[in-house]
C-alpha cells in the first residue's frame, strides 16, 4: 500500500513537533525516518498509525484519505519501542489477540494455525506458551513483530525497533527484518536515531531535523551527496576545519580543495576519519599528535592542527606514530559548505 503524507503538522502545547512534512512511500518500500531526539520522527510515525491526531495536512493510504480513520480501523501493524507485549498473556495469546478482537471472524483452528505460522516466520517455534517476562529482549521484539503482522496490516510501522537491544542482537535482528521484509513485501516505515541502523536496513532514508525533512534518498545518495552540514554531522563522526574560498579554491592552511560551487569567503570542510591520512614528512596540514588509540582494525589518531583545530582520523595498524609526534595530514576527500 502506497502512503502519502501531504504537508502534515503537529503541535504539542507550544512545541511544534512536526512542521509541514510531505513524503511519498511507495508500495513495498522500506523507509527509515532518521533524526536526533525531538526531530519529530516518532510523532510522524504515530500520526501515520492514527495514535496522534494530525493538526494540519492529510495522510493517504493508497488513494484513500486516512487522516481521520481511527487507529483500530486503520489496519496498521505497530511495533512499539518497548514492545508493549501483554504481560498477562502467553506469546501465543499475544500473537492471537489481534485476530480474536477482529471484526473478521476466524475459527479457533484458523487462529491456532496462523499463530503457528507466524511463530515459524519469526523463528520462535516452541515458545508459544511462555510469558513475555520469560523470554529475552530480542525474542520479545520478534513476538511484537509477529503480533503486528497477525492482522495482515497494510502498513508496518516500527518505533525504534532495536533501541533496547545490545549491539550483537541488534545487528542480527536487522538483517533478519530485512529478510522478512523482502519475503512479505509489506510497506514498512521505521523510526530510528541510529544512522548505522537506517543505512543498513532501509531502501530510502528520510532525515529529519526540528520537525522538517532535511534530506531524503537512498543510503548511497545521502551518504555521498549530503545536502547540508547537518546531514554530514548527523550521519557519522566527522572533523570540521575552517577554510577560506577564493576563486573556486578552498584553502585549509596547508591543503587546498576545489570548491567550484562556493562563493568567495568563509567555508567549512567536513572530513570523515577515513578521509584523512598521515605522514611524518612533507605536504598537507601540519599537525601534532595528542593521543593514539589502538583499535582492532586500525589506529585512531587524535591530533590538533597548528591553528588548534582538533582532528580525529584512522590510519592503518602498521603506521608508527605516538603522542607528541609532529607530521602532516593529507586530505583524500572532503565535503565543503559555506560557513554557518
Amino acid at each position: 500500500m502506497k502512503i502519502r503524507l501531504n504537508d502534515i503538522a503537529k503541535t504539542f502545547d507550544d512545541f511544534r513537533a512536526v512542521r509541514g512534512v510531505s513524503l511519498d512511500i511507495e508500495s513495498g518500500e522500506l523507509v527509515a525516518l532518521l533524526g536526533p531526539s525531538g526531530s519529530g520522527k516518532t510523532t510522524i510515525l504515530r500520526m501515520v498509525a492514527g495514535l496522534e491526531y494530525v493538526d494540519e495536512g492529510q495522510i493517504f493510504f493508497g488513494d484513500e484519505d486516512a487522516t481521520s480513520i481511527p487507529v483500530r480501523e486503520r489496519g496498521v501493524g505497530f511495533v512499539f519501542q518497548h514492545y508493549a507485549l501483554f504481560p498477562h498473556m502467553t506469546v501465543g495469546e499475544n500473537i492471537a489477540f489481534g485476530m480474536k478482537v477482529s471484526k473478521t471472524k476466524r475459527t479457533k483452528a484458523e487462529i491456532t494455525a496462523r499463530v503457528a505460522e507466524l511463530l515459524r516466520l519469526v523463528q520462535l517455534e516452541g515458545l508459544a506458551d511462555r510469558f513475555p517476562s520469560q523470554i529475552s529482549g530480542g525474542q520479545r521484539q520478534r513476538v511484537a513483530l509477529a503480533r503486528a503482522l497477525a492482522v495482515d496490516p497494510k502498513v508496518l510501522l516500527l518505533d525504534e525497533p532495536f533501541g533496547a537491544l545490545d549491539a550483537n542482537v541488534r545487528r542480527d535482528l536487522r538483517r533478519w527484518l530485512r529478510e522478512i521484509h523482502s519475503e512479505l513485501g509489506i510497506t514498512t516505515l521505521f523510526v530510528t536515531h541510529d544512522q548505522e541502523e537506517a543505512l543498513d536496513l532501509a531502501d530510502r532514508v528520510v532525515i529529519l531535523d526540528q520537525g522538517q525533512i532535511v534530506q531524503q534518498g537512498t543510503p548511497q545518495e545521502v551518504t555521498r551527496n549530503p545536502d547540508s552540514a547537518f546531514v554530514v554531522r548527523f550521519l557519522g563522526d566527522t572533523n570540521k576545519l575552517s577554510a577560506t574560498v577564493m576563486g573556486g579554491t578552498a584553502d585549509l592552511g596547508g591543503a587546498s580543495l576545489a570548491a567550484p560551487a562556493l562563493p568567495d569567503g568563509k567555508a567549512d570542510a567536513y572530513l570523515r576519519p577515513g578521509d584523512l591520512s598521515w605522514s611524518a614528512t612533507g605536504g598537507g596540514i601540519p599537525a601534532i599528535v595528542e593521543r593514539v588509540i589502538d583499535r582492532p582494525g586500525n589506529r585512531r589518531i587524535i591530533a590538533a592542527t597548528e591553528r588548534g583545530e582538533p582532528l580525529e582520523f584512522d590510519v592503518p595498524p602498521e603506521i608508527v606514530v605516538k603522542a607528541g609526534d609532529r607530521g602532516f595530514v593529507q586530505i583524500e576527500r572532503a565535503q565543503l559548505f559555506a560557513a554557518e
Partner: peptide, 13 residues
C-alpha cells in the same frame, strides 16, 4: 499507555 495503544492498533474496541 503502550499496552492500550497496542491493543487498539490491533483492532480492539
Amino acid at each position: 499507555r503502550d499496552l492500550e495503544e497496542a491493543a487498539t492498533s490491533l483492532g480492539a474496541s
